[in-house]
Simulated assay, not measured.
Amino acid sequence: MAKNNTTFDNVFRTMLEKMPELIVPVLNEIFGTNYPLDVPLEQLRNEHQTLNGEKITDSYFGIGKKGYHFECQSTGDSKMVIRMVEYDFAISIENVKKENGIFRMRFPHSAVIYLRGTRKKSLRMELIMPDGKIVRYQVPVLCVQKYTKDEIFQKKLLFLLPFYIMRYEKDKKKINKSETELHKLLEEYESILQHLDKILYDQGAIYGRLLELIKEISDYIFKKEESVKKGIGDIVGGKVLELQTDKALQKGKELGEKIGEIKGICETAQEFGGSKESLKKKLIEKFNLTEAEAQSHIDKYWKE
């Protein structure tokens, strides 16, 4: 990804690092595989030595014995295929193995995710060997803007959702000035959140991160269109706040249960003639408390 597109780059990498399970349906969509969402996915090294020096790939990960290399591209680049073959060669040569007395290098399964445009289908290059044989190098392409909201949910391509707003980028000034167009856009994002509620609400960490990344891309795309930025921010930000509130309530509930258990242990120890020192030791070990915290609970619940 180009260096000036740090917002897209950061979102792409954050999802791969924090929510790697979301890339699995994308991988299935591109390569026609059928991996389950919980398939073990190993993050592999993204720094590789090339002719021009060290290059950092957007993502390189492994599933079983197969390596997968993804690049995220926000704009058209006629030389993208050259970069891809360079990255793949660097990855392959670092993982070369000797089998039956012969060195073998295996290229990873690679793909490019295009955030803008819908025309690209694949990237191709021909490698001509000294004996005249031609090796055809081909990389499949996934164009985010080809997928409707319904297709994204139907195929579980939630990884694409933060970038979904980019299809409205060309009309952003028009949307910002038209209440009708803005209302239609906000209704669509209300619908997106309703869908996410149904499938992710019990996965608070993933849900919350995904919403934050949706807002991050939206804020970037509409940084000068205040009406749109605020409208989407209110919808998505409100849901993030709701999730944080739920998390705080759950934490309070757990804390209340913990305090109740400590109180019961203190009262039981006193009732059956236990010592304060043995009680303190038990509280420290069971609840991972400091000595001062344990003593504070004893002072509060031990009736003199």
Rank of each mutant, 00 (worst) to 15 (best):
M129H: 11
T118I: 10
K120I: 08
S191D: 14
L186G: 05
R116I: 00
T180S: 14
I214M: 15
I165M: 01
L182N: 11
P140E: 02
K121D: 13
I214D: 00
K156S: 15
Q203I: 06
E216F: 09
K230W: 06
P162V: 04
L123P: 04
K155A: 08
Q145K: 01
S122I: 08
Q154V: 03
K174R: 14
K229C: 12
K170R: 13
I128E: 15
K177N: 09
K198E: 13
Q138R: 10
S122G: 14
S122V: 07
R124N: 15
P162I: 02
L182M: 10
R119G: 15
C143N: 15
L123R: 04
L185E: 11
E169M: 07
L210D: 03
D150E: 15
E188P: 00
S191H: 08
D150S: 09
K172E: 04
I128M: 05
A205L: 10
L123A: 01
M166P: 05
G132R: 08
K133Y: 08
L200N: 07
F153A: 06
S191L: 13
S122R: 15
P162M: 06
K156T: 08
D202I: 13
I134L: 03
I221S: 05
L160Q: 01
K215G: 02
Q138I: 07
K133Q: 10
D171Q: 14
Q203D: 13
V144N: 07
L210T: 04
L186E: 15
S191E: 15
R116Y: 08
K173S: 11
K230V: 11
P130M: 10
Q154T: 10
L157T: 01
K121P: 00
I221E: 10
K230R: 13
V144I: 08
I152M: 12
S178W: 01
F163N: 01
K198F: 10
E225K: 12
Y220H: 12
K173H: 09
K172L: 04
G117F: 00
N176C: 01
R209V: 12
D219M: 05
N176F: 02
K184I: 07
L160K: 01
K215T: 03
Y201L: 12
K146W: 07
Y114N: 01
L142H: 02
L127F: 14
E181Y: 07
I134Y: 01
K177Q: 12
L213V: 05
R209L: 14
V139E: 03
Y220A: 08
G204F: 07
N176D: 14
L213W: 04
L186P: 06
V139T: 09
E151H: 07
Y220N: 13
K223C: 09
L213E: 15
D202N: 11
K156F: 05
K156P: 02
Y189D: 00
Q145N: 02
K170A: 10
Y220W: 09
L182T: 04
C143V: 05
L196S: 06
K174A: 15
K198N: 10
A205E: 14
